[in-house]
Amino acid sequence: MADNPYVALALAFAPLSLVAFGGGVSVLPAVQHQAVDLHGWVDAPQFVEFFAISRTAPGPGLMLTTLIGWQVAGWAGALVAMLAIFVPSSLVCLVVMRTLSRHEGKAWHAVVQEGLAPVGTGLVGAGVLSLFRIADAGPASWLVAAATGSLMLARPRIPPMLLLLAAGALFAGWSLASPT
């Protein structure tokens, strides 16, 4: 059974899904260990290349496993690898959320919700700070972020997708115009 590439992919990634606390980054070394050391699906330089691709492509960071699955068994392998890394954690999330919403309307539910909200806000704020570090952001990024944030606060009806694309075009244009 372990010779079946789909089963092997599922068995390699599904358990990691359940321990991916704090998002994908936390299990990245374990993904590498499975794919490179244990199964030899990809070699180390290839893994680094996959990592770079996953950083430039849209989607969660763990979409990286899709590329490993592709390497092992084409489209079907890619699909199995993606589902293996995302379905287990999503099922946990679903069960927790359904359980909580069953208690909606009770006094403690409102208190818990009121208590959780500021922690969520703080984590988003912390996310901004750490994103700036990993995205090698300069003053231009701060400026764009501050401008986008203030604009959205002042004019919530502006489509944010427009701002995202405009900022991307601005940076790309700047890079094309300044030969460094």
Binding site: A137, W142, A146, T148, G149, L151, L164, G168, A172
Partner: peptide, 15 residues
């Protein structure tokens, strides 16, 4: 360009 998109996304998180 991708850095630009990320910067604007951080702006949304600031908001």
């Amino acid at each position: 360009g991708l850095n630009g998109v990320t910067a604007a996304a951080m702006g949304l998180m600031l908001m």
